[in-house]
């Protein structure tokens, strides 16, 4: 990306101060979101979210596995993000690894809760089949195809949509002759378990440029930020996770203020996503 000249930087700062950004948006406006579901038919669930020029694809695959001995009544969920080199030439080879791992960890923190599994946005106990022996392993893979800022929000939204699109085949368990054996599992082709995504949180990132915060920053605006905070909120407005990036320090009152703004913005984002998901489901049902 070409560097910004001094004039351009001033323009950005000024615009934000005036509540008129370079592309005409207000400070807390999101770019138009477009959502597509089922883009990867081979996966159990998939979604593609375009936030302006940012384009991310998320696919969810479920595989049979053994639950961890620490939590025998829960399935396992793993989130991986990969920044494709098509998004930016600097992601070539291992260049995108740093960003990928940062995004993965942030998403894990926001959606999966702590180590003990408490407070997770996605409830893994619905993934268990036979306690202690067989469970579903959910692999959530994100791919950043094109990057124009605000990757975390886009990925969060994509994960929520993909989960609503996910169908896990129903299983019937055939117990082996002795109780110690690994039971055999028979898949049914027709019935699917749908995920309940009302509990899944969305992520709202607020970027502080100068003295104001903006939501949904573009790449240029992000380059001018002093610090950014990503808040993960669920339907009830509860905070499920929090990440602060950027070098500049923030006054604690500013932090609390940012959180309340994020809640407000988050509600709107949530309702917009929900309506999009419903529209997509209706379209899919009609096609059937």
């Amino acid at each position: 990306m070409v560097g910004l000249s001094l004039g351009e930087k001033q323009f950005i700062h000024g615009g934000i101060a005036e509540d008129l950004r370079t592309d005409g948006r207000k400070r807390l406006h999101y770019r138009p979101i477009s959502i597509e579901t089922g883009v990867i038919p081979q996966a159990n669930g998939s979604a593609r979210v375009r936030l302006g020029a940012t384009d991310v694809i998320v696919s969810i695959k479920a595989e049979l596995g053994k639950p961890s001995s620490l939590q025998p009544d829960k399935g396992k969920v793993a989130i991986f993000v990969d920044c494709s080199s098509t998004a930016a030439p600097m992601f070539e080879g291992r260049g995108g690894e740093e960003l990928s791992s940062e995004l993965s960890v942030a998403l894990q923190r926001c959606l999966l809760g702590g180590k003990s599994g408490a407070g997770a946005g996605i409830d893994p106990s619905s993934l268990v089949i036979v306690e202690g022996k067989v469970c579903w392993d959910l692999y959530i893979d994100g791919l950043v195809v094109s990057s124009d800022g605000n990757l975390l929000d886009a990925l969060g939204a994509a994960i929520k949509v993909a989960l609503s699109n996910t169908g896990i085949p129903k299983v019937t368990v055939i117990l082996g002759p002795s109780p110690n054996d690994q039971p055999d599992v028979d898949l049914s082709d027709e019935e699917f378990l749908q995920f309940d995504t009302t509990g899944v949180p969305v992520i709202v990132t607020l970027t502080k440029v100068g003295r104001h915060y903006i939501a949904d920053a573009t790449l240029e605006e992000e380059s001018q930020m002093s610090s950014a905070m990503s808040v993960s909120l669920n339907r009830h407005g509860h905070i499920c996770g929090l990440t602060k990036r950027g070098g500049a320090g923030l006054d604690p009152s500013v932090v609390l203020d940012m959180i309340s703004v994020a809640q407000h913005v988050g509600e709107q984002l949530m309702s917009m996503l929900d309506s999009e998901i419903a529209a997509a489901e209706a379209a899919a049902a009609q096609e059937q």
């Binding site: 038919p41 081979q42 996966a43 695959k61 595989e63 049979l64 085949p169 599992v185 898949l187 082709d189």
Partner: peptide
Amino acid sequence: QSKSFAKKTKQGRVIKVVR
């Protein structure tokens, strides 16, 4: 058109097959 179904491999893994 596309047909999709789930298949279980010999190792016990589940693959979704799309044709």
